[in-house]
């Protein structure tokens, strides 16, 4: 029991340390929540803030699964997967959202480069998945039509 308790406390402490680090030194903490990237108003700026580059190479080894038409923009299922080796992170950008960066997933070694989630889309937009593998960026995009937006209301 005491061991278990220690693990839990340790986990909390690590979580807290990450939050602190994100305020003080966003560059050093690899996995910290990147405020400037998440608040950026256009995709290029968000990509630059998050990944350090404005462009990613289009690659067939990155797969973005999303519907052609999303009836409800509040819930759009998106799956990102990649067959590339050494995937470090995968991010989802929605070009025409108020803040294009939707999510960033860290993929430690041993974890499959295949993540599914659900995103909100304000209107019809291009959705881009950017995969960072071996220090390089690869991407895949897809246009998703939205009939009812999910941001305002």
């Amino acid at each position: 029991m005491s061991l278990h308790r220690r693990t839990v406390i340790k986990a909390i402490a690590t979580g807290g340390a990450l939050v602190g680090a994100s305020v003080l030194m966003p560059k050093l903490a690899f996995a910290a929540w990147n405020k400037s990237a998440f608040e950026a108003k256009d995709q290029t700026a968000a990509m630059k803030a998050l990944l350090g580059a404005e462009n990613a190479e289009n690659s067939s080894e990155v797969t973005l699964k999303a519907p052609d038409i999303a009836e409800n923009g509040a819930v759009v299922p998106v799956t990102v997967s990649s067959t590339l080796a050494d995937v470090e992170s995968m991010s989802v950008f929605i070009q025409d959202n108020p803040s294009p960066l939707a999510a960033e997933f860290m993929i430690p070694a041993g974890t499959a480069a295949n993540v599914a989630t659900r995103v909100r889309m304000g209107k019809t937009s291009k959705v881009t998945a950017v995969v960072k593998a071996g220090g390089k960026l690869y991407s895949a995009s897809k246009e998703v039509k939205v009939t009812i937006g999910g941001c305002g209301g």
Binding site: A31, W33, N34, F38, A74, V75, V76, I94, N97, S99, L101, A102, A103, E104, F105, M106, I107, P108, G110, T111, V115, T117, R118, V119, R120, M121, G150, C151
Partner: peptide, 11 residues
């Protein structure tokens, strides 16, 4: 084994 940074654009 997994970590996600999410923005408000997640459902």
């Amino acid at each position: 084994v997994f970590e996600a940074n999410l923005g408000p654009a997640i459902s």
